[in-house]
Amino acid sequence: MTNENIVWHQQTVSKEQKQAQKGHRPALLWYTGLSGSGKSTIANAVEAELFRLGCHTYLLDGDNVRMGLNKDLSFSDADREENIRRIGEVAKLFVDAGVIVSSAFISPFEADRASARSRLNDGEFVEIFIDTPIEVCEARDPKGLYKKARAGEIPNFTGISSAFESPKKPEIHIHTQHHSIAQSVELIVSYLRSKQIIK
């Protein structure tokens, strides 16, 4: 619901001026994949490389955001949708500030990812599918979540009792069984260069 008394405030310093100051274009790198797929690991490695290259970055991680901004949300389908809606809005503000922002969330539903994409200009949303078979994710189980989900202790767990809708046409498709972390970083950074997001 939108309040008719709220009007978007136009800032004195434009998005284009912020972009020129930073020396690169803003973008939202949207990492999606199952729990334990390697989203945060790869997103952190990419951010480290972009920082080394002099880019202005910020990483929004699923667990970190749920500790503050989204701590009132559960893992029901409705709350997952609201979780991603809020992240899309926050990420849009980062992009408006001229930053390359990374979002590392399971974001299991295609419609929610499409909604996040629709908030940005063409070319600013980069969907990165961290494609790891569930057997591999479950074998890793770094947080012990799959074990709890199998025991019925975690309802609505993606891949077990809740669906994950794989991206149909992601800008970047990382197969972690075939790509090391270093190779994944190179693929992503090379894509950003090819699209002139970074120099």
Score class of each variant (00 low, 15 high):
166 S>P: 07
63 D>M: 03
65 V>Q: 05
199 K>E: 15
12 T>V: 12
11 Q>C: 08
65 V>D: 04
162 S>I: 04
8 W>Y: 10
82 E>G: 00
67 M>F: 10
134 I>E: 00
21 Q>F: 13
45 A>Y: 05
175 H>I: 12
141 D>N: 00
146 Y>K: 01
55 C>Q: 12
110 E>G: 04
70 N>A: 10
182 A>V: 06
55 C>G: 11
189 V>D: 13
112 D>Y: 00
35 S>I: 00
143 K>W: 01
168 K>F: 04
37 S>K: 11
183 Q>W: 03
107 S>N: 03
25 R>C: 10
118 S>L: 04
74 S>W: 05
144 G>W: 01
196 Q>A: 13
182 A>R: 08
84 I>K: 00
32 T>A: 01
101 V>W: 01
37 S>E: 10
155 P>D: 07
53 L>V: 07
133 P>H: 12
99 V>M: 15
25 R>Q: 14
41 T>H: 06
55 C>F: 07
139 A>I: 00
197 I>N: 12
52 R>H: 10
154 I>P: 00
42 I>V: 15
168 K>S: 15
103 S>A: 15
103 S>D: 05
184 S>M: 06
128 I>Q: 07
37 S>Q: 06
165 E>V: 11
60 L>Y: 02
142 P>V: 03
182 A>Y: 04
144 G>N: 01
172 I>E: 08
18 K>R: 15
92 K>T: 08
109 F>A: 01
142 P>G: 00
120 L>T: 08
144 G>Y: 01
4 E>H: 13
135 E>C: 03
167 P>K: 10
6 I>P: 02
45 A>Q: 07
69 L>S: 06
82 E>D: 10
28 L>M: 14
72 D>L: 07
93 L>P: 01
139 A>M: 04
149 A>C: 07
11 Q>Y: 11
41 T>K: 03
2 T>G: 13
